[in-house]
């Protein structure tokens, strides 16, 4: 291709209304492509450059900071109604680079790359010395708490047997020894009262997910488990899996049991 002289970008204000619109498109794209964990919300636009694209349109090169919300990516709650995870809950931030094309008034995400990091434990303890700190999902206390919570939930549930899909968050505090977990479950073709071998229970074709929060506290008299789950409406299985579309949730269920991933990884699907 011939060398094009004069290629340059234009400096734009980060709080420019159109840049904010581009950032919201980018965050929406991020949430639609997250394979697990929680939805993220825009916190700050760090940098922006606007490039003219030949023959038409402009490309926004954007750096944004996001924050984790309390809504899981499978939760149908609109992002606007999701709460930001507070510092006392050990907040997680995301750093993202996006290239967004604007052409004929339409925005198209051309490139995205995100990383996420939890706040440091030291920073959390500065604002809240007794607050729980994030721990890895493969910690034995986490695995034990999730199993105890899921067993308790299924024992109280006369209907469908729910299977673990993903551990989404895990925290602990030393005194009293307590573990707090958040995890995703899915309905199976087994009934909770009759299940003998959970491995033989299959997820329903029309996926029904639930999001659970549980805690396990070590007391003198033994363990105290509490669990609360919110079951979402059934999600019809798409006719064909589009690799560039929203998270193919059906594929996660077989591999995501007791994941050992760090608690704050921002995994996005294939790029366009």
């Amino acid at each position: 291709a011939p060398h094009i002289t004069g290629m340059s970008f234009k400096e734009v204000a980060c709080d420019d209304p159109e840049v904010e619109q581009v950032a919201l498109v980018a965050v929406d794209y991020l949430n639609q492509h997250l394979l697990h964990g929680f939805k993220h919300i825009l916190n700050q636009i760090d940098k922006v450059k606007m490039w003219n694209r030949r023959p038409f349109g402009v490309v926004y090169e954007l750096e944004i900071d996001t924050l984790e919300t309390t809504c899981h990516v499978l939760d149908p709650t609109p992002l606007a109604n999701c709460s930001v995870r507070q510092l006392t809950e050990h907040a997680v931030e995301g750093d993202c680079d996006f290239h967004v094309l604007k052409q004929d008034g339409q925005f198209t995400v051309m490139h995205s790359q995100c990383h996420s990091n939890p706040d440091s434990a030291e920073d959390v303890h500065k604002v809240c010395p007794s607050c729980a700190i994030l721990i890895p999902f493969n910690d034995t206390s986490v695995v034990h708490t999730v199993k105890a919570a899921l067993d308790a939930f299924n024992a109280q549930n006369n209907g469908t047997y729910f299977k673990l899909v993903e551990i989404s968050r895990a925290q602990n505090v030393p005194l009293p020894v307590s573990t707090f977990v958040e995890f995703v479950v899915a309905a199976t073709d087994c009934t909770a009262q009759e299940v003998t071998d959970p491995a033989k229970c299959n997820l329903l074709a029309e996926k029904q997910y639930g999001f659970c929060k549980a805690s396990l506290v070590q007391r003198l008299g033994g363990e105290e488990v509490s669990v609360a789950c919110k079951v979402f409406q059934k999600q019809p299985q798409p006719a064909s899996v589009n690799t560039a579309g929203p998270a193919p949730a059906g594929d996660q269920t077989e591999t995501a049991a007791l994941p050992a991933a760090p608690p704050a990884s921002l995994v996005v699907g294939p790029m366009v």
Partner: peptide, 27 residues
Amino acid sequence: KVVQPGTVGAAGPVAPLCPGRVRHFKI
């Protein structure tokens, strides 16, 4: 007559274009 340089006809402070506002809190 001595005049402090920069006091006559000086432009006001230019607001930085970026980064933008923090919507929630910084980590």
